[in-house]
Simulated assay, not measured.
Amino acid sequence: MNYKTAIVWVAACAMLILFLVGAVGGSMVKMPGKSHRGPLPPLTPEEKRLSERLREHVLVLAGQIGERNLVNYHGLQDAAQYVGDRLRESGLKVNEQSVLIEGRTVVNLEGVLEGKAAPDEIVIIGAHYDSAPGTPGANDNATGVAALLELARAFAKAQPERTLRFVAFTNEEPPHFQGDTMGSMIYARRCRERGEKIVAMLSLETMGCYSDQRGSQHYPAPLDRFYPDTGNFIAFVGNVQSRELVRRAIGTFRKSTRFPSEGVAAPETLTGIGWSDQWSFWQVGYPGIMITDTAPFRYPHYHHPSDTPEKVDYDKLSRVVTGLDHVVTELVRK
């Protein structure tokens, strides 16, 4: 190959790569509707009350209880008791899936609302209640659990067409992460073994950090080509197989909620895409998405002892949970 031919070949390859990145990127990131821009509206009275209830949950889980995992087993037990009690107080029937891990019993907690029109079609709202070793886990993931509890409270008296489950998972964090002892993996496999028809799984994960400063948001390549560098949005994240669920959820959120939002449906091998309990459902063929502030790509206290309750923006979390109420309402319709 001579010099000129080599130059032409390299240029052609470069153009092909750019074309493929653009094509794949477009299918991954193009979402219905538009993200909210500009000032946020004042909180409604109900959003203010919701903000305080979310704060109370996080203060108990990450303040009073603190670290909760098999290393701090009493904390894990106390967290499970708290979550189960709150689900029952909402009026939900609560089932416990107990498993023995490293000689200790851990539980997934499941609050159930039976569907009226299509009870065999199931929507799952999930969040893990354990924390990583060495951290009280306020944002990761007491915020997700708080959101779960408040959504359960909001829907407890509803009559959904599809069955709605609120599931608090154990053992999401290392060393169980993406392994056989991960609570959501144990749960998802049981769903598959029973032949259950899960039509949507939403994982509520690390949801309380927001910033209007430029440069506050980071991404794994090549997502930095397509998204803003200001970390003021909530993200809807799925794998390619779950892209219709991503689009449906963020489309509903954008129609109903004046709060910034971004969405992506990407290969699960891309860094960060599978970093929560939705990953377990993907492994057994169910559609699932993660609702997140993007965790370590924005939050500097991720998996650190400094992940404490005062770091959470409860008012913005309240806005997000209010928007997710609309998303769940739409998903449980037949």
Rank of each mutant, 00 (worst) to 15 (best):
1 M>E: 06
1 M>F: 07
2 N>F: 06
4 K>M: 11
5 T>P: 06
11 A>H: 04
13 C>R: 03
14 A>D: 12
15 M>Y: 02
21 V>I: 15
27 S>Y: 14
29 V>D: 02
29 V>Y: 10
31 M>V: 08
33 G>E: 08
35 S>P: 10
36 H>N: 05
38 G>K: 07
40 L>F: 01
40 L>K: 05
45 P>W: 14
50 L>I: 13
51 S>P: 09
53 R>Q: 07
56 E>S: 00
56 E>Q: 10
58 V>R: 02
63 G>P: 05
64 Q>N: 11
66 G>M: 07
73 Y>M: 12
79 A>G: 06
82 Y>P: 03
83 V>E: 03
84 G>C: 07
87 L>N: 01
91 G>T: 11
91 G>Y: 09
106 V>H: 05
106 V>P: 00
108 N>D: 07
109 L>M: 09
113 L>W: 03
119 P>L: 15
121 E>Y: 02
128 H>C: 06
128 H>F: 15
129 Y>N: 08
130 D>V: 13
131 S>M: 14
134 G>H: 13
135 T>N: 04
137 G>W: 05
147 A>C: 06
151 L>D: 01
151 L>K: 01
154 A>K: 06
156 A>L: 01
156 A>E: 00
164 L>G: 07
166 F>V: 07
168 A>N: 04
169 F>C: 03
169 F>M: 15
178 Q>R: 15
178 Q>S: 13
180 D>T: 12
184 S>W: 12
189 R>V: 09
190 R>Y: 01
192 R>G: 02
194 R>Y: 05
196 E>T: 15
197 K>V: 05
202 L>A: 03
204 L>H: 00
206 T>V: 14
207 M>N: 05
208 G>S: 04
209 C>L: 08
219 Y>L: 05
220 P>L: 13
221 A>Q: 13
221 A>H: 10
222 P>T: 12
223 L>S: 03
226 F>Q: 11
227 Y>I: 06
227 Y>W: 07
229 D>I: 14
230 T>S: 06
232 N>V: 05
232 N>C: 09
233 F>H: 10
235 A>Q: 00
241 Q>H: 06
244 E>W: 00
244 E>K: 09
254 R>D: 02
254 R>P: 01
257 T>C: 02
259 F>C: 10
267 P>R: 13
273 I>C: 05
275 W>L: 14
275 W>P: 02
275 W>E: 04
282 W>D: 14
285 G>M: 14
285 G>I: 13
287 P>W: 07
290 M>T: 13
290 M>K: 11
292 T>W: 04
293 D>S: 14
297 F>W: 15
299 Y>R: 09
305 P>C: 01
306 S>I: 14
308 T>H: 09
308 T>E: 15
314 Y>D: 04
317 L>N: 12
319 R>P: 02
324 L>Y: 08
327 V>F: 04
330 E>W: 02
330 E>I: 03
